[in-house]
């Protein structure tokens, strides 16, 4: 009986080429990625036929959640002189100065607190609690505590999130939201001020099911401080919708 000899072949698959491809892809994604920044509220923006893209630098995002709470995010120039960190520290100084002019209970920030503020993404707590909020950054686990505060998930009833805002059409007695927005115009970053003036520098991001009343209050506040032009962030509308 003759036996059929089966040649033993190695099952080794050469993965080098595969590895090359994956490394290339990885490099691509690493270089092009901009991370989703964590926001205090998740919103679904309304669909629109508008094709215009949001700009990457020099704009202020006003995030409004369905309950009408407001948070701000400041995006500055890419240049070193007007970096986000420098401008935010300046912004906090400016706001504190304006706040102290009209309030009897003065606020003051330490260098450490200012540094903590300059590293924040979205912000939005009442100015009277801002000091306490920024002190959290010094603690271990501080970032988590701050995020929780902003999202309204820490179980401290005294901690309020969202920038205080109300119907106010008197420019001489601005509310805190108006103080912040006015200060945005007054930093050294002239590019941001110009963008705010031509309307592309203020972007309102809100959920599609938010009652118009809440958005109207934000718009009305902006109109009062002569920011009549702004943009609304929308999502791309699917065909046939």
């Amino acid at each position: 009986m003759g036996r059929v000899k089966i040649a033993r072949k190695s099952t080794f698959i050469d993965m080098t080429a595969m590895s090359d491809v994956t490394v290339l892809l990885l490099t691509f994604f690493m270089l092009t990625s901009t991370f989703l920044s964590k926001e205090p509220a998740t919103v679904v923006t309304p669909p629109s036929v508008s094709q215009e893209k949001v700009q990457e630098t020099n704009y202020v995002q006003v995030l409004v959640n369905p309950e009408g709470k407001v948070w701000l995010t400041m995006h500055n120039d890419t240049s070193q002189d007007y970096s986000n960190e420098k401008m935010k520290a300046a912004l906090l100084d400016k706001v504190a100065e304006e706040y102290n002019r009209t309030h009897t209970k003065k606020i003051q920030f330490t260098a450490l607190q200012k540094q903590a503020f300059s590293k924040l993404g979205s912000f939005g707590v009442p100015l009277s609690q801002m000091g306490e909020f920024l002190d959290l950054a010094q603690l271990p686990e501080g970032q988590t505590a701050m995020d929780k505060w902003l999202m309204g998930e820490d179980n401290n009833p005294n901690h309020r999130t969202g920038i205080p805002i109300n119907w106010n059409s008197n420019e001489d007695t601005p509310n805190e939201f108006q103080l912040w927005m006015k200060a945005m115009r007054q930093t050294d970053n002239q590019n941001l001020a110009d963008k705010i003036k031509d309307g592309t520098g203020v972007a309102i991001k809100a959920d599609q099911n938010t009652a118009f009343e809440k958005i109207h209050m934000v718009m009305d506040n902006l109109q009062t401080i002569h920011m009549n032009k702004f943009t609304l962030l929308t999502a791309l509308k699917a065909e046939g919708e």
Binding site: F29, T32, S33, T34, F35, L36, T45, S48, S50, Q51, E52, K53, V54, G199, T200, A203, K205, M219, Q223, N228, K229, F230, T231, L232, L233, T234, A235, L236
Partner: peptide, 15 residues
């Protein structure tokens, strides 16, 4: 983790 799609904007001006 990346955002490939940038959100669109709609410009409005109010009186």
């Amino acid at each position: 983790c990346t955002t490939m799609i940038k959100s669109q904007t709609l410009n409005i001006s109010l009186p």
